[in-house]
Design a protein around this nucleic acid. Structure first.
Length: 132
RNA sequence: ACACUUUGCUGCUCUAUCGCGGUUUCAAUCUUGGAUUGGAAAUGAGGAAAGUCCGGACAACGUAGAGUAUCACACCAUCUAACGGAUGGGGUUCUGAGUUUUCAGAAUACAGAAAGUGUCGCAGAAAAUAACCGCCCCCAACUUGUUGGGGGUAAGGGUGAAAAUGUGCGGUAAGAGCGCACGACUUAUCAUGGUAACAUGGAAAGUGGAUAAACCUUGUGAGUUGAAAUGCCAUGUAUAUUUCGAUUCUCCAACUUGUUGGAGACUGGGUUGCUCGCCUAGCUGAAUAAGGUCGGAAGGGGUAGGCAGAUAGAGCCCAAAAGUGAUUUUGGGUCUAGAUAAAUGAUAGAGAUUUUGUUUUCAAAAUACAGGAUCCGGCUUAUAGGCAGAGUGUUUGG
RNA sequence: GGUCCGUUCGUCUAACGGCUAGGACGCCAGGUUUUCAUCCUGGUAAUAGGGGUUCGAUUCCCCUACGGACUG
């Protein structure tokens, strides 16, 4: 049985970490989602992955649309995050902070978002990247 | 019955699994408080939550007072915590019916142009002290019906959004509210009705073009700033640094003879934007040095976590009574989000409504506008479908 | 959350409540040139939307839409 909960601690809230992600984070995109992330040393109090979700206000001016897209992305992450946990190396000393940005232009359906989320989580390599 | 207009109400439903926010409760671990993890229960976004166009509650600052500026509002009464909101009424304008007296509906920033200033393009003689043409009178000249000069006159003149109170009679050289009759309008006034706005009627004076969503005048009201207000706790730090200004003078009294006290001027600061007024400061020192203090500006360092504010209230529902109504009173019942990088979603199934195809069946698609952020009362704007009421028109039947 | 400002040809801008809404850069057509550029001539094209005040609105007032600035 996999863990499907999504607590408040797993939300990314620290302002300085978010600014560092936007200034020197690494990114790639799978339609309709773009992922930006940064890796740092592990603290004991915070969980391994901290995640935030945003939708640009320029493309979706109404708050109803933005809320719905954020909820759907959150749901897709919650149901598929065991892909990430299964890829953690055994002697892990790092933690990851990630931001998912919705880059599409229309209101999506959930199946599209879930497909993009699964491929993103598959493609993200957590192990020892040689360039690091 | 259908169509249109308008007003009000409503704003898809249920089940299972996983997951999120706060509340209550149970268990475990660490334990001073308390924190973390897990389980359970009930619960969790609107009529506009929106725009931020008004009004309040609440909070901070200010709080002897006066004047003025600035801003807002402007028929009357009532309602309300308050309002630029609502209800009822009045006036004006428009539309329809009907017809000369009304009825119905809609709109209405609806104080003052007779306090003053400004503006009124083009056209037109003239756009606000109206004589260009025309009409009339007097004088002069001669070519004897024209010219020139002086004066009177707003009845007529192709314009314009607007042309000096309309029609008729009298009157006059020609004319003119110059006079009269019937009207129109304005001002202050009297009587009746009405709480009042106002209506009706009488007598008097008068005829003043429009524009105040031009300046303005009158009346009424408003202190300023807004939950990023504000209070407390924790963490952290630097009363750092630079620069500008002020720290003055006179008089009186006392004695301890250079100090103290009082009064005044001046300067700085506070006092709602300004003024007066009020409060307060002007130290050490021989010194224009130096230090201290006060005020302004520049610039820097730190934190960016938690609690309160913050959800029981001008609350919601039902009934009765008062009132034309907005609304109020009384009685009973009820507790119903409280987040802070910010909680409502996904999957599966069933049903409801609408549309399309097919037409017993069935299949597919869609289900509006839109998401709390301190809280209320309004206004404005967006809104699929459904329900109810009113009005108008058409058709059918009696 | 709060306070305030603005919207004029495709772009940048001007305007006393009063003429056909002016100018520059563009674009189009013609001319000049062997051709292109430059230059000359002409044309095109706008008051964010709705309502009101006024004889008359880009201008004054109200509502809506959009854009922007400030505020810890």
């Amino acid at each position: 049985m996999t863990d499907q909960s999504f607590n408040r601690k797993e939300h990314l809230k620290n302002v300085s970490i978010i600014e560092s992600i936007f200034s020197d984070g690494k990114s790639f995109a799978v339609y309709p989602i773009r992922l930006i992330w940064v890796k740092s040393l592990l603290y004991k109090t915070t969980p391994t992955f901290q995640v935030a979700f945003t939708v640009p206000k320029r493309k979706f001016p109404k708050a109803v649309d933005r809320n719905r897209i954020k909820r759907q992305i959150t749901e897709a992450y919650r149901l598929n995050k065991n892909i990430l946990f299964s890829k953690i190396p055994p002697d892990n000393i790092h933690q990851w902070a990630m931001i998912f940005i919705y880059t599409g232009k229309k209101n999506p359906n959930y199946s599209q978002i879930e497909k993009g989320m699964v491929t993103i989580l598959d493609r993200l390599k957590l192990g020892d990247r040689p360039g690091k």
